[in-house]
Amino acid sequence: MKCISVYTNNFELFSDIYETILSTPLAENEEKEVEGVTVSESGEVPENYLDKMKARPDVVVMRLKDRDITILQHGSVFEIFIPETESVVH
């Protein structure tokens, strides 16, 4: 799974820029700023990382079933997990 990290603890702001983030082309380990928020392409993440994070009590899990995307929020970061088969519009 591909992981995009979004460094904010503001859910409303994250929600407002979510689609922009998905449509922003990012190379592996590249950082960009989207509306004042740092966004980073964190590369490939093993499946067990996602399972381990979901089990933590301080992690909020959001699931977009129609696109098979999982979003984790913990501390001041959101992590967007996109399966290999998901094609992000660039």
Rank of each mutant, 00 (worst) to 15 (best):
residue 76 S to V: 04
residue 68 D to Y: 08
residue 31 E to H: 05
residue 59 V to R: 01
residue 87 S to I: 09
residue 31 E to D: 12
residue 88 V to Q: 11
residue 56 R to G: 06
residue 12 E to G: 09
residue 3 C to E: 12
residue 9 N to L: 05
residue 25 P to D: 07
residue 31 E to T: 14
residue 80 I to S: 02
residue 1 M to H: 07
residue 26 L to H: 01
residue 83 P to F: 11
residue 17 I to T: 04
residue 40 S to C: 13
residue 19 E to R: 07
residue 82 I to G: 06
residue 32 K to N: 05
residue 24 T to Y: 00
residue 87 S to V: 07
residue 66 D to I: 01
residue 52 K to A: 14
residue 39 V to M: 02
residue 89 V to I: 10
residue 19 E to M: 07
residue 66 D to T: 10
residue 11 F to N: 13
residue 37 V to E: 00
residue 22 L to G: 02
residue 36 G to V: 06
residue 57 P to D: 15
residue 20 T to K: 09
residue 34 V to D: 01
residue 2 K to H: 03
residue 54 K to H: 04
residue 74 H to E: 15
residue 51 D to P: 05
residue 3 C to Q: 12
residue 61 V to I: 13
residue 33 E to Y: 05
residue 22 L to F: 05
residue 37 V to T: 00
residue 71 I to P: 02
residue 57 P to Q: 11
residue 13 L to G: 03
residue 26 L to Q: 02
residue 40 S to Q: 08
residue 13 L to C: 03
residue 33 E to P: 02
residue 29 N to S: 10
residue 87 S to G: 04
residue 79 E to I: 05
residue 38 T to L: 12
residue 28 E to T: 13
residue 5 S to N: 14
residue 70 T to Q: 13
residue 59 V to Q: 03
residue 62 M to T: 09
residue 12 E to S: 15
residue 53 M to C: 14
residue 12 E to P: 06
residue 70 T to R: 06
residue 31 E to P: 07
residue 74 H to D: 11
residue 66 D to M: 07
residue 4 I to A: 03
residue 53 M to N: 07
residue 14 F to W: 03
residue 21 I to Y: 06
residue 83 P to C: 08
residue 85 T to K: 11
residue 13 L to E: 07
residue 15 S to K: 10
residue 67 R to W: 06
residue 31 E to K: 12
residue 28 E to F: 10
residue 40 S to E: 14
residue 3 C to K: 13
residue 2 K to T: 01
residue 35 E to G: 00
residue 58 D to M: 05
